[in-house]
Design a protein around this nucleic acid. Structure first.
Lengths: 130, 130
DNA sequence: ATATTCTATACTAATTTAGTAGGAATTACA
DNA sequence: TGTAATTCCTACTAAATTAGTATAGAATAT
């Protein structure tokens, strides 16, 4: 399971929103400050929004807010919303990636590895890192 | 932890050698058959050899053999011999990849995730997939 | 009206991955 | 001693992925 910068920033964004839970909309530029690309973070926020993990409001005073309590978010669902394929190897989650899965000697390893990773991340909640 | 094709093929190579444990040297061309690039597999074998997981003999009748019993090899050591960085995110194993590790809110997640993955792969042995 | 904020899509540069290519060194065997 | 089979070494390359940048548009508070 390789975490890309999208996953990393998505989690940081959620941490920021989590810390400000209940305080209304938070804009991307407030989250990034001057130290990071607003444009890139916008794109990440859009993915989280599309996955219904956060909700948006446009315009002045707009921004993003969490849709549920920080203790209800698993780290898994956050990463899964922005990453293409969280599996250690594509074939685990993408049936088209390999046709010999049934006879593959190494496949069970990747599959089991993914299960362990996913379980850990499903049990870990956003509130645990606030 | 993303497994590249190098890791996948390395494990398949080791499985082949494991099945032929005690039968002398096995050449790359025997392992790959006609279905796969001998040249690429040679490179992977060279990495395993450099890591002392297998030993080589050149020339006619040459090839590779395991240096210990299949039950002594962990999947972790095999993958680690050929992959650059098995961690979910570079900073976990590469100190130069990030300077703010101490204050990073998400770092503990990646670190813990890696520990879980590594432990699983260390307990899983080559013999388990023969 | 205007400034601020998200939305959508297209583009690009850098990096990584997955090989390919060519030849040198070593060895068994005829 | 010659030859074929094998590993060893290094350089190269094409495709895919990643990490952003750029541009323009839509919605909203004031």
């Amino acid at each position: 399971m390789r975490i890309s910068s999208k996953g990393k920033y998505a989690l940081e964004l959620m941490v920021y929103l989590g810390r400000n839970y209940g305080k209304g909309s938070i804009s991307i530029s407030e989250i990034t400050g001057d130290s990071f690309s607003v444009k890139y973070m916008e794109k990440i926020a859009a993915l989280l929004n599309k996955a219904k993990l956060i909700k948006s409001e446009r315009g002045v005073e707009g921004g993003y807010t969490l849709v549920k309590d920080p203790k209800e978010y698993s780290i898994f669902e956050i990463l899964n919303a922005v990453e293409d394929n969280l599996a250690p190897i594509k074939c685990v989650l993408d049936d088209d990636a390999c046709k010999v899965k049934i006879t593959c000697k190494t496949y069970p390893i990747w599959d089991e590895l993914y299960e362990i990773e996913a379980e850990f991340l499903k049990n870990k909640k956003l509130i645990d890192i606030l």
